[in-house]
Amino acid sequence: MKPFLAMLAVTTALTLPGIASAGQVTFTTTMRDYGGPGAYLAYYVTDASGKYAGSLWMAGGKAKYYQHLSGWTRATAGNTAEINGITGASVGAGRSLSITLDLADTLFDAGYQLHIDSAAEDMRDAPNEIVVPLTADGVGKPVRGTRYIADFTYTR
């Protein structure tokens, strides 16, 4: 019976941390009244060494425009498989987009940075318009954008 209990304990111990180590994170992005059509926004994460870690959201549904999100395109080689299931509508001027995701807790306070590239028709592209470290201290603190984004906030 002892091996049974030991194996059961091991499998349970291995399983539980994986379940407990994720939580809801909400990204809120408010756009400026920049006087153009809906902007495409690419949300993606780099690790402590600056290496691309993965995409979190793509606002904008037409792949042919993703080239204008040059930071994301460079990181992913434009691979749309990176955003399967995490693609939505572009975001109009003056509007606000809130995205709630279940993310691994290991993303926080571990050197990861969230990047947001933005672009709008006939206007300048803004790669890395927002670059913000994912930290517990940064929760709820607005970050100002430089071109299309008025401010960006994340909450847990």
Binding site: A22, V45, A53, G54, S55, L56, W57, G61, A81, E82, I83, N84, G85, I86, T87, G88, A89, V91, R95, S96, L97, S98, I99, T100, L101, D102, L103, A104, L107
Partner: peptide, 22 residues
């Protein structure tokens, strides 16, 4: 979202679905 299941890139909790509001 156009497709409801995020990619398995290690960033998302398995089986989670994004909620989006504009």
């Amino acid at each position: 979202p156009q497709s409801a299941t995020p990619p398995a890139n290690g960033l998302f909790a398995p089986g989670s679905k994004p909620a989006v509001q504009m």
